[in-house]
Design a protein around this nucleic acid. Structure first.
Lengths: 175, 175
DNA sequence: GAGGGTGGGTTTGAAAATCCAACTGTCATG
DNA sequence: CATGACAGTTGGATTTTCAAACCCACCCTC
């Protein structure tokens, strides 16, 4: 199911994807099934117990159990016993899991704009205590290019397909 | 299926979500089904025809037809005839669809780091012609807070749940 | 020590979604 | 007239999903 070629220490399985080789497709293979991202959302919010996640996502218990297992196997969540006798676990995010924050924020921002009437949650941001932005304010994300500092908006972007046998428009004939 | 309360001019249907009211859940309701984001990826890449999207995503034809219809209904893609006789359509992104770019980029970045061996595609970025960053370079996104300019990393964030009857940890009893 | 409650799942059976291959219909081209 | 492209649709088997019920280990109270 997974092609574990050359994975680093803390890496997650590298899924194979149908169609074009694509990191987004690979990401979706790992966290794109129904309920997966909602479960991760709850863990982000600090709700780590099975019952809480069921309640707050509305997922069927059996599906959630299956997803959490898959996410564990994918290296995105980690199961920690918080009690022996009876054995009880809670779910934590791994580094890979925490690294999904930008995905969640992007989805949230899109949903705020396009999929809901009034945003049901907001994030408040506070800079470092001494800094000039120590006052709390609503978080309003934009994506900027780390190397040039400019906002990466509409234009100025070109695709560079590096996977052999593929280009922007599909599989390449002569290969 | 949708609670069309007070939608703006160019808005998409506002889906109801199970569990906690959440814009990300609403977003996933619209674009979270299998193949949907991959189809959108192809349209981003300029591949607008059914056959191309099938080929490049690997989706079953019937599923893709269903997804494209759902995405159209969701206001994310638009179907334009590029030929009468025979009637043929191609798929374009609406503004809502184009606005999914940050979601795609976030997924791509996560996948680049965690889900693939070597990134199969990269984006090249070039600033405005006169600007100091006119040279082309790899796009490397970071999320910064629009109001304070700081990178929105790990700390400094608090959740503010505004949906009535809910808080960070779940539904509120006394209501 | 019987009964009830909690937490974390698993089981069951029916409904829905998915997959794949083959098929259709409309046209253009040779 | 045969072939092929394009854009789907159809049929039938296979998987997933769902909701509700159930199970098990433990704790608490009476």
């Amino acid at each position: 199911m997974t092609s574990n070629a050359k994975q680093g220490e803390n890496s997650v399985p590298h899924p194979e994807v149908p169609g074009r080789p694509c990191s987004a497709a690979a990401a979706l293979q790992l966290v794109g099934e129904r309920w997966a991202l909602l479960a991760i959302r709850e863990i982000f919010y600090g709700n780590r117990r099975f019952g809480q996640i069921v309640r707050n996502t509305g997922a069927p218990r059996d599906r959630l159990a299956a997803r959490l297992r898959a996410l564990e196997e994918a290296g995105v969540v980690e199961r920690r016993a918080y009690s022996e006798r009876p054995v009880r676990f809670e779910y934590h995010l791994t580094e890979a899991g925490r690294d999904l924050a930008p995905v969640m924020h992007a989805l949230l921002a899109w949903g705020d704009r396009w999929a809901v009437d009034t945003p049901p949650v907001a994030f408040r941001h506070r800079g470092a205590p001494g800094s000039e932005h120590a006052a709390e304010h609503d978080l309003d994300l934009k994506s900027t290019c780390r190397t040039c500092g400019e906002e990466a908006g509409a234009g100025g972007l070109t695709i560079d397909v590096r996977a052999p046998g593929w280009d922007r428009s599909g599989p390449v004939e002569g290969s």
